[in-house]
Measured scan of single mutants.
Amino acid sequence: DWREIAKLAEEALKKQQPVTVNGQTFNDPNEIKKLLETAQKAI
């Protein structure tokens, strides 16, 4: 669910920690931002 992904990505950016989505881990803040943008577009 994109809403859940957006929430996870936002928290990861705030806490500056990696986030795992669908078994894929994102460590890079730039990648997390991209993930968040993608999720927000999909909602």
Rank of each mutant, 00 (worst) to 15 (best):
I43C: 07
K33C: 03
D28T: 14
N22K: 06
D1E: 11
T20Y: 11
I32L: 06
A9Q: 01
N22V: 03
Q17W: 11
P18D: 05
L35M: 04
E10G: 07
E4D: 10
K7I: 12
D28E: 11
A12S: 04
Q17H: 12
K34Y: 10
I32M: 02
N27S: 14
Q17T: 14
K15Y: 14
Q24W: 10
K41I: 13
I43P: 04
E37A: 08
A9L: 15
K34E: 10
K33W: 12
T25Y: 13
Q24L: 12
A6V: 14
A9W: 04
A6K: 09
K34T: 09
E31Q: 08
L36N: 02
A42E: 15
K15P: 00
L13P: 01
E10R: 08
T25E: 05
A9Y: 07
T20R: 08
N30D: 13
E4R: 07
E4Y: 11
I32P: 01
I32Q: 02
A9F: 08
K14I: 14
N27Y: 15
K34G: 04
T38E: 15
T25N: 06
K15L: 11
A12P: 00
N30E: 15
K41P: 02
N30F: 12
P29K: 09
A42T: 05
E31C: 04
K7N: 09
G23D: 07
E31F: 10
T20A: 07
K7T: 08
T38G: 06
I32F: 01
E10K: 08
L36A: 02
L36T: 01
E31N: 04
Q16E: 12
I32T: 01
L36F: 06
W2Q: 02
E31S: 10
W2A: 04
W2T: 02
L36K: 03
E37G: 03
I5G: 01
I5T: 05
K14R: 12
W2K: 02
A42Q: 14
I32E: 01
D28I: 04
I32D: 00
T25S: 08
E10Q: 13
E4V: 11
N22E: 05
A6P: 00
A42M: 15
D28L: 05
A39N: 01
L35W: 04
L8Y: 06
Q17F: 12
A12H: 01
E11M: 09
V21A: 05
N22Y: 07
I43M: 12
Q16M: 12
V21C: 04
G23F: 04
K15R: 11
R3A: 14
I43A: 06
I32K: 01
Q40K: 14
